[in-house]
């Protein structure tokens, strides 16, 4: 990156370290932190949306809709995450390519599944073989977001439907007595009040999501754990910068990162919890009211 780093074998001490830490591979490592943060930023709202939909469906009056909501949450929660990441992603990828092949391939006579092999014409490959490495990374990232959102959405479904049931019946009855329709009760009373009950569960899920990001690696998205392992491993003189086993230091770095992430989340979520309890008919809300009075 810098002119003095042109020949790493001749460098020593701090200069060596400075050059080492700014090598192309290290810059990729630093970028992978952004990847992880971006994944969290996209997945969390997506999982919330799915979860909210699932929770609404599982309380629906229409039976089939209710089955979908309950079935979704029960099925996904019952299967280990790692199975989803191994199986579902390949199925999703092949599904997309299969559908695309029906539209773009000229010759559809060859079977798509030939024994263990999966065949679609080159034009139907997603991404195309000619695409840039960045496109491949972005596609892997997209698959990861979808998979994470589906898995965590199922847990959110469960948390939110529990929270909806925790809102005191008296609150809803009062609203009904005021002449509000079911829809109005749901929007004006149930949803604003349920968050305070949902928050502990959602906080938990957020923490689990942060810790689950290394699963990205299974989707060949290079995340921070992959780079820590790769950069930290013993490097012989086949590499420009050779060093002994430094994985301990890299993983200590990751430890600090994860602890910081969870600490910041905790601070933010405590504030959110205080804010949500305001004026609620819960112990925390009551305490706040007394404190103010």
């Amino acid at each position: 990156m810098f002119a003095i780093c042109a020949d790493p074998k001749t460098l020593e001490g701090l200069t060596w370290l400075g050059c080492y830490l700014t090598s192309g591979k290290h810059l990729d490592f630093y970028m992978s932190f952004v990847t992880v943060l971006a994944l969290l930023a996209v997945t969390a709202p997506a999982a919330m949306l799915l979860g909210f939909g699932g929770a609404m469906a599982s309380r629906a009056r229409l039976a089939p809709l209710r089955w979908i909501g309950k079935g979704y949450s029960a099925m996904v929660r019952g299967v280990p995450d790692i199975v989803y990441f191994m199986f579902f992603v390949i199925a999703l990828d092949q599904g997309i390519e299969y559908v695309r092949s029906r539209f773009v391939c000229d010759d559809l006579s060859a079977p798509v599944f030939q024994g263990m092999e999966f065949h679609v014409c080159n034009a139907a490959k997603v991404p195309l073989a000619t695409a840039s490495p960045f496109t491949f990374q972005a596609y892997g990232f997209f698959l990861a977001v979808v998979t994470f959102a589906i898995v965590f959405g199922a847990f959110v479904t469960h948390v939110l439907s529990g929270a909806m049931q925790a809102v005191p019946r008296a609150q809803l009855e009062t609203a009904e007595a005021y002449g509000m329709s079911q829809r109005q009760v749901f929007r004006r009373i149930l949803v604003p009040q349920m968050w305070v009950y949902a928050l502990p569960g959602l906080t938990n899920l957020w923490m689990v999501l942060i810790k689950a990001t290394p699963l990205l690696f299974l989707l060949s998205v290079k995340d921070i754990v992959y780079y820590a392992r790769e950069l930290g491993g013993t490097k012989t003189s086949a590499y420009a910068y050779s060093h002994p086993d430094w994985r301990l230091y890299y993983f200590l770095g990751l430890l600090v990162f994860y602890l910081l992430m969870t600490k910041v989340s905790e601070i933010v979520l405590t504030r959110v919890s205080l804010r949500l309890s305001k004026g609620q008919a819960t112990a925390a809300g009551e305490a706040q009211r007394r404190g103010l009075a």
């Binding site: 192309g24 491993g233 590499y239």
Partner: peptide
């Protein structure tokens, strides 16, 4: 276009060099 795949962790056969590219 032919896509080649390697492990990138088996020097001197294949490795990810310090530029972050496949080498070896």
């Amino acid at each position: 276009v032919v896509r080649l795949a390697t492990e990138g962790a088996y020097p001197p056969f294949n490795l990810i060099n310090d530029k972050g590219e496949v080498g070896g």
